[in-house]
């Protein structure tokens, strides 16, 4: 619905445009905004146009690579990476369990590092490469950690599983999968309420011992 070219994030620290945008948003109706942007407002006869103006001012351009595909998106700054993935890109493999960095269900890789996507504003990931659970397998061939989770039954309901797997891949890559105790500690940022922890540890140990490339 937004056909106009949105602004780029201000790269020079000048916020002149932002200041006027702020003022604009503070005004409750499009008519009152006439003094700022008359050409737009003359058309603002109904709420739909009002919406479009709001959209225009609220959204910013985000360049982001998700699962190997570079994308240019328009997002509001308040959209989290998690909600961007789930609601706008329909990559629902990444889960919302708490929305406050307290469960790990939303774990994805950003530039190769595991993070909680619920506490990262999407716009903060400008230029980053994001990998979600959907991007882990090579086509039909599952990632070794995915295979190991199936083999060791590292889940029950499956809701925390994408986060667990993304975290497990990192755990091995980081070099923190050298013993059951170390895995338990470095996998403690991913809560599993069904209680599959021992199986998750077994799955990670299995992959680690197998020495596969993760």
């Amino acid at each position: 619905m937004n056909t106009q070219k949105p602004r780029q994030a201000s790269e020079n620290g000048s916020d002149g445009f932002n200041a006027s945008r702020r003022d604009f948003l503070k005004l409750s109706s499009a008519v009152a905004a006439a003094s700022i942007t008359p050409s737009v407002v003359t058309k603002a006869a109904d709420k739909k146009v009002d919406e479009r103006i709001a959209d225009y001012f609220e959204k910013m351009t985000l360049n982001i690579e998700v699962n190997g595909t570079a994308q240019q998106l328009q997002v509001e700054p308040r959209v989290t990476l998690l909600d961007l993935l789930r609601e706008q890109l329909h990559l629902t493999g990444t889960k919302k369990g708490c929305d406050h960095g307290q469960c790990g269900a939303c774990t994805v890789h950003a530039d190769g590092k595991r993070i909680n996507s619920c506490l990262s504003l999407a716009i903060m990931n400008e230029g980053k490469k994001i990998t979600t659970i959907e991007g882990l397998a090579k086509g039909e061939e599952l990632h070794p950690v995915q295979q190991a989770f199936i083999k060791h039954d590292g889940f029950q309901c499956g809701y925390c599983t994408p986060g667990q797997i993304m975290s497990a891949v990192s755990c091995i890559r980081e070099g923190h999968a050298n013993s059951a105790g170390e895995i338990r500690e470095f996998m403690s940022g991913n809560i599993c309420r069904c209680g599959a922890y021992p199986n998750i540890v077994d799955a990670i140990m299995d992959v680690k011992k197998g020495g596969q490339d993760v």
Binding site: S10, E11, N12, G13, N18, L25, P77, R78, L121, E126
Partner: peptide
């Protein structure tokens, strides 16, 4: 709430 976001160079 809606807020502004800038990324200074």
């Amino acid at each position: 709430i809606p807020f502004e976001y800038i990324r200074p160079s």
